[in-house]
């Protein structure tokens, strides 16, 4: 039927125009990473570092992201917050020196291939390593985000944390799935 054909063509054309329209996809929030960013902020309050490993009071405490940053603007609200008497900073890091200046280091999924080398280089550093790579905590990382029925949950490797002298609060452990290397 000619009418139906025209209707279809118009519908497809309208869909293509809507699809090509700039904007919505670009500024749509990624709630998953907003939740993960808020978790990173909370982790700072539920983990104890050996006092001598933290920067002096009044200076900065740092969350680093290594590899392709999946957070977009989701980490922005964290910047400048006061945690443990220090000012929270967020930075993308790549050099070994920068990595070691962080208290929490988020290792992006883009670093999956070089994960063994990264974890080896951070073995003695008092850094909470966090990722979202499958099996991250079992491979020696400390916290790994996992997806569970539309929610962000996390695994914790308590042995890996202990080996660095880090103490994880029981409130955090209660919510975590505790795994071993």
């Amino acid at each position: 039927m000619r009418f139906k054909g025209i209707l279809w063509l118009r519908a497809i054309a309208a869909l293509l125009v809507l699809w090509a329209a700039p904007g919505p996809a670009a500024f749509a929030g990624t709630r998953e990473y907003e939740i993960k960013a808020a978790y990173l902020y909370n982790f700072l309050n539920y983990i104890e570092w050996p006092e001598q490993s933290l920067p002096p009071a009044g200076s900065n405490i740092t969350i680093g992201v290594v590899g392709e940053n999946p957070f977009g603007p989701a980490l922005d609200p964290l910047k400048g917050k006061q945690v443990k008497g220090r000012t929270l900073t967020v930075k993308e890091v790549s050099s070994a020196e920068d990595l070691k200046g962080c208290q929490i280091l988020f290792i992006s999924a883009s670093e999956k291939e070089r994960l063994p080398q990264l974890l080896e280089s951070l073995k003695d550093a008092k850094i909470v390593t966090v990722s979202e790579i499958d099996g991250f905590a079992q491979r020696g990382g400390i916290i790994n985000f996992i997806y569970e029925r539309n929610r962000v949950r996390f695994e914790i490797n308590q042995d890996a944390a202990r080996s660095k002298g880090l103490t994880i609060s029981s409130d955090l452990l209660k919510l975590a799935r505790v795994v071993k290397s």
Binding site: G29, R31, E34, I35, A38, N42, Y46, P77
Partner: peptide
């Protein structure tokens, strides 16, 4: 919607 840091664990 961007800031969830006010939420508890």
């Amino acid at each position: 919607p961007g800031d969830l840091t006010g939420l508890s664990l």
